[in-house]
Design a protein around this nucleic acid. Structure first.
Lengths: 237, 237
DNA sequence: CCAGCCTACTTGTATATACAAGAGTAGACA
DNA sequence: TGTCTACTCTTGTATATACAAGTAGGCTGG
């Protein structure tokens, strides 16, 4: 079977939602109706509805039915913009130091985050960004070689990985994890900060239509960098 | 049934993971083993593993087995939702300690952030949130008394400020600043952490149609809390 | 009129079963 | 020795079934 039956049902519903045939708040066919319509068992239809619900496209309530959620994507505070632009916007000089640029064997976790099968060879880069001579970002990045095969040939002192990857594989989505941590001795040295200096770590995964492009860990000294953002709330709570 | 069987199995595994009995990379009991161990059918055990995998705690691969993932973010989205919900969703207990709840004279900066003229009297609260007895958030909040005049009369051990404010002044927007910092001695003591423990500080301003409702500083121990987010990129770059 | 019950339909949980497909291993065989 | 096969264990997909539980609407008896 090329695609599982439950996935076909998911796709069908998603398409209807995205094309506006199913308006927000609109009631969706029940599990039994879908089961009959697609000639599958109720549990299979249920799986499609369940996963769409889990992903935030649908709202389900016992006794009532399944409905299209009002607005799904939350615009988030974390924009995808590269730090080089930010620095230049402030009228400052931006230098980039390439620490590492290589092809490596991904471990299972890394392969998983890139949506690849283990084992897999991936690209790996470590860069440090300087604003007026002061280190402001330590970037460690793993790149899917299928989507950016010439990654290691780039000259990242003139074009940032973000810029290059945006060209070869336009972004469609991204997710982030933000945390506070202390730098490792190595990173502290690269950023020229004390090991007791708390840092902001942003782990970012970027997606294009073809799949997961890369994930990166961006580490910023807490006293030199803040993250700002704005959310527009659709409904409430 | 108080709690579904599959949820019991989830809790059991989660507890083992969080207490380090199941180390990252460690192989987890197979569906059949769990089914026998808990006296349920394979499909029920499977549901527990599936949901934990979906949530990022486990990695599964066909033919090999199920393994504990390295680490995962605690909150999945940068929504405006209160931390109490997150804690409850994890099936944990949430306690709130009210440290301060008063009316104070806002300084010029505070009045400015609330969009008020100096001088102005505003409400001020300091709360500490506990998850299973461990402090997970120190919240200091300033509230616009015009939009929530009965703020100080609330019992915040039963309803969170976020929930209350959402009721009296539905949110329309919010902005954030995220930074990494070291806690002050006082905050370190309230959170029961070392003063060298880096923390994530989220400064959040919330807006309703009538104006700025409140701004709050939410401080989380870096080793107990992460922030996750997802962006849907509409068009360019 | 309306309060209460009953029924039909919904989602939620749980089970038993079957087969498919990926991965590793032991053993047969050349 | 090396290779291919067969077996076993794993997760993945799909089905049929049963009962629980929440919701709404209608019907009946007072």
């Amino acid at each position: 079977m090329a695609q599982p039956r439950y996935a076909q049902i998911k796709s069908h519903l998603l398409q209807q939602i995205e094309q506006g045939e199913l308006q927000p708040g609109c009631k969706v066919a029940s599990e039994n109706q879908l089961a009959e319509q697609f000639g599958v068992s109720r549990m299979t239809a249920r799986r499609a509805l369940d996963e769409l619900s889990e992903a935030g496209f649908l709202l389900r309530s016992q006794g009532l039915g399944t409905f299209v959620a009002d607005s799904r994507p939350m615009s988030s505070m974390l924009q995808i913009r590269n730090i080089a632009d930010e620095i230049r916007e402030r009228g400052h000089q931006c230098q980039i130091e390439v620490v590492t640029l290589e092809q490596v064997e991904a471990n299972e976790q890394q392969a998983y985050w890139l949506g690849l099968q283990h084992p897999a060879r991936v690209f790996h880069s470590v860069l440090v960004f300087f604003e007026n001579g002061r280190a402001i970002q330590y970037e460690e990045r793993y790149v899917n070689p299928q989507l950016a095969p010439e990654y290691v040939q780039q000259d990242f002192s003139s074009i940032t990985p973000n810029e290059y990857l945006s060209q070869v594989a336009p972004l469609t989505e991204a997710d982030h994890i933000v945390e506070a941590l202390l730098p490792t001795p190595d990173i502290a040295q690269q950023l020229a900060i004390a090991e007791s200096q708390p840092c902001l770590n942003i782990t970012r995964r970027t997606f294009s239509k073809a799949g997961i492009v890369s994930f990166a860990s961006l580490i910023h000294p807490g006293d030199r960098y803040r993250l700002g953002g704005h959310i527009h709330v659709s409904s409430h709570v």
